[in-house]
Amino acid sequence: MYEISVLILLFFIAASIVLYVVLGGADYGAGIIELLPIGNSEIRKKQREIVNRAMGPVWEANHMWLVIIVVIFFMGFPVVFQNIMVSLHIPMVAVLIGIVARGSVFTFRHYEVELTPAREKNYTITFGLSSLWTSFWLGVSAASLFRGLISNQSLDFYSLYVAPWWGLFPISLGLFITSIFSFLASIFLVGETDEVAMKKYFVNRAWKTNLFVIGTGALVFLAASFEGYELVNRFFKNPMAIIAFLFANLSFFLLWFKLKKRKAFYTRLIAAAQVSFILVGWFAIHWPNALKIDGIYVSFFNSAAPQPVLNQLIIALLVGSCFIFPSLYFLIKTFKMKVKES
């Protein structure tokens, strides 16, 4: 019973992470690609309009997944939550600063009544930089979980609060995450415009960010082996991870085929699936662990809260899903399936 409860919660965690990375990721990426100094001012203006229209109705909902993940962790896995919040205090604060800056600036830009060019530029740059900054630190934080440098026993500030996330591997995962987010955003935005020139522009963005994804992905593996982190080893011993890796790579061909035909719906689906495969691989490699403290893996199964707590959490999540998913469907149906009509 207890194990089943934990499994159900892990399903919710995994689903929320996948949804946050795919939906929230596209949102972060939109900020990042707005930052890239590409295209003339005409194109950049159009790009801003498309991003406003595409992200405006959904950005707040996209970020709720993060809140759901936090709540599941602090109610269901308090020890894991506590350790992450202590050892990764610095990257977490960095993430929060970014979240505050980008969310408010994005909204301010949209509702600004005196949008002078200077003001618009400031808003856009802040939105872009904070999107880049936040996604980078999200990657750094994720990288730190299993690196084995999280410690409760060290005594000095550096090894307690800096060493866990400081190094080549976290930095390369941070870069990888920013590339993935930009790639997701480019793919997503292709379907958000009817104008052929803008579609071409976003397809071009998708190509280029895709190259970054491949490059930084390779960097992640290199950095891991350079650091002596057993990622590669674990990876090739795990059939699930290998399958996920193969799927993620094979679907690239399908993606580019569909993208050539500019089938927005399928390209989005494939890109989302790719990113999900990468995450599945990541989960599979570390299964069933939540993090590594002082060289010892902490499993989800022996760090969960008592049974009555898990029951209440599962009830809350199931009832919550009955409200959230239909309303999300309605939101998406209203804004994302009627694009062509408007």
Binding site: F74, A305, V309
Partner: peptide
């Protein structure tokens, strides 16, 4: 966390 997680999850 586990004790007051319920109002937070709602």
């Amino acid at each position: 966390g586990p004790i007051i997680g319920m109002p937070f999850s709602w």
